[in-house]
């Protein structure tokens, strides 16, 4: 390995399932090339070797759900030149943000034998709600090619090629037949940001919105069409309340179909 100074990379985890960090480890063919370009200084999912900050690039997975998280993310921010959040938890609060719509104390009482040990916030929120973020990479989980593109752009000092348009454009580029038009399937594609690689529509499923709202989501018009296709208000409500339930556009739309 070269002796030249490589930028230091740190990978942090907050409330999350680790799937986005695993996406980085899943870059099997590219992982060695990546380690030639960056020095992995903090990545507990991959290695117990830990180096002190500051770090050139921090990838942050997970949402903020505890008072401790708030302190920790401020420290991460302080130690990082570039802070890039990865995945629906870090960019929107994740599936665990469903707590934001309920009384979290009720959950604690139901789930834990000793609720008094639990010290948690009433909400699950995005990293950008707490500290400034340089780039948000969407997805549940993130797409490995997009992840590499963001790292590549960070290392080369350019803007990443991550489109913010609808999933529909990605479906059409790949020649996938529209589920909503050709089968009447409920689909969030028109209001969801592209980038997953057409995972669900390519397998005859509607889009579940894993990549969160696209740049200009007209959720009301889509919801109207879903109702016209025979979905109930409750169906529409639940469709918007998944991994990106706390993303602004999705939260507002689900609220209006309570």
């Amino acid at each position: 390995m070269s002796e030249r100074k490589r930028p230091k990379l740190a990978v942090w985890k907050f409330s999350s399932c680790d799937g986005c960090q695993l996406t980085l480890l899943d870059c099997e063919d590219e992982l060695l090339a990546l380690t030639e370009e960056v020095r992995i200084s903090y990545f507990l999912e991959a290695t117990r070797k830990v180096e002190k900050g500051p770090y050139d690039v921090s990838l942050v997975e997970g949402s903020i759900t505890t008072p401790h998280d708030i302190k920790a993310i401020r420290e991460v921010r302080k130690q990082s030149k570039l802070l890039i959040t990865i995945g629906a938890c870090a960019t929107a609060g994740g599936i665990q943000a469903l707590r934001n719509f309920k009384n979290v104390k009720d959950f604690i009482r139901t789930v834990y034998a000793h609720p008094e040990y639990i010290d948690t916030l009433t909400t699950s929120t995005a990293i950008s709600d707490h500290v400034p973020v340089d780039f948000e990479l969407r997805g549940c989980p993130v797409n490995k090619y997009q992840m590499l593109e963001v790292l590549n752009a960070a290392l080369n000092g350019r803007k990443p090629n991550i489109p913010r348009h609808s999933q529909c454009i990605e479906c059409k580029e790949s020649g996938t037949v529209c589920r909503m038009v050709a089968a009447g399937t409920a689909c969030l594609g028109p209001v969801t940001q592209a980038g997953c690689g057409t995972l669900c529509p390519g397998k005859d499923r509607g889009c579940y919105g894993c990549f969160g709202p696209m740049e200009t989501p007209n959720t009301a018009a889509l919801a109207g069409q879903l109702l016209a296709l025979g979905q109930t208000g409750r169906d529409v409500h639940r469709l918007f309340r998944t991994y990106n339930a706390n993303a602004d556009a999705f939260r507002k739309e689900s609220d209006s179909h309570g």
Binding site: H165, S166, C168, I169, C178, V191, N218, L222
Partner: peptide
């Protein structure tokens, strides 16, 4: 108001 700006 109807347009999804999806680009289809």
């Amino acid at each position: 108001a109807r347009c999804l700006t999806c680009g289809n």
